[in-house]
């Protein structure tokens, strides 16, 4: 059952280095000609590390419209370059605007897909990896609890919504303004429920000896192997190469 160390998968620390590298590049650069190959590299990395890229995108399909809208807004409101679409002599979309819009979409895409790579690791291993990197356990544990709380909040919201509907409120039939107000009513029980759970969880943590000593032991130890080092070296080369290429003197 219990294994003294985890084998067979990349160490979460090597994935973290890769993800940090990819997302840093996505934040620093805003040219489609760099972001496009970076997006492709991110997808390849995600596929290689068996991250459910397509599944994640399908789950986020509602948000994708928001990102698309952000891209369009950037395209319309950013001036400069050659006009591409004109209306009564006013440039609606310019080449610079389009470039910015595409950049924003690619940037968000890279960050989301690279973040998805971390979901291929067990959160417990991520905590352990951070802890072995001398990150204080309390901080690493807070990350795990935060991850745990997201589905809890969703469950709490669903329960409250169901309770409301069981009392005869048919949300889909309400006018928009009333519906928004009704969603506001959900907030109080939602927050109260989450706070109650947080209090109970803190009791459980405290009564199981949390922070009994400045350090703690672990029943599993992560071991970086050759593949992990290779992945981290590739990620670092990718990042430093991109920076050197970008900041070297002369045109890009």
């Amino acid at each position: 059952m219990t294994t003294p160390f985890v084998k067979g998968d990349y160490d979460p620390r090597s994935k973290l280095v890769l993800v940090l590298g990819l997302s840093s590049l996505a934040v620093v650069f805003d040219y489609p000609r760099i972001l496009l190959p970076l997006a492709l590299a991110t997808v390849l990395c995600a596929l290689y590390l068996r991250s459910g890229v397509l599944g994640s995108l399908v789950r986020m399909r509602r948000l994708l419209w928001v990102f698309l809208a952000m891209g369009i807004i950037q395209s319309v409101f950013t001036r400069g370059g050659q006009p591409l679409v004109e209306l009564a002599g006013v440039a609606l979309v310019t080449t610079t605007g389009l470039e910015r819009g595409v950049s924003i979409i690619l940037r968000i895409f890279i960050i989301l897909v690279s973040a998805g790579i971390m979901t291929t690791s067990n959160p417990r291993d991520i905590i352990q990896g951070l802890y072995q990197w001398r990150i204080p356990y309390e901080l690493a544990f807070m990350v795990a609890v935060a991850v745990r709380f997201l589905p809890l909040m969703r469950e709490e919201a669903e329960d409250t919504l169901t309770a409301l509907q069981l009392r005869g409120v048919r949300l889909e039939e309400l006018p928009l303004r009333t519906r928004i107000r009704t969603y506001g009513y959900l907030l109080t029980p939602l927050i109260a429920g989450v706070l109650a759970r947080a209090r109970q969880m803190s009791l459980s943590v405290e009564m199981r000896g949390f922070r009994a000593y400045p350090r703690r032991t672990s029943h599993r130890t992560l071991v970086l192997d050759g593949r992990d080092y290779l992945l981290m070296i590739i990620a670092l080369l990718l990042v430093s190469g991109a920076f050197v290429a970008h900041f070297r003197p002369g045109p890009l």
Partner: peptide
């Protein structure tokens, strides 16, 4: 709060 049962059970002794 952990995603694996054995991690949950190990949490207390690890703290101690």
């Amino acid at each position: 709060f952990f995603p694996v049962v054995e991690d949950e059970v190990a949490f207390g002794p690890e703290n101690l």
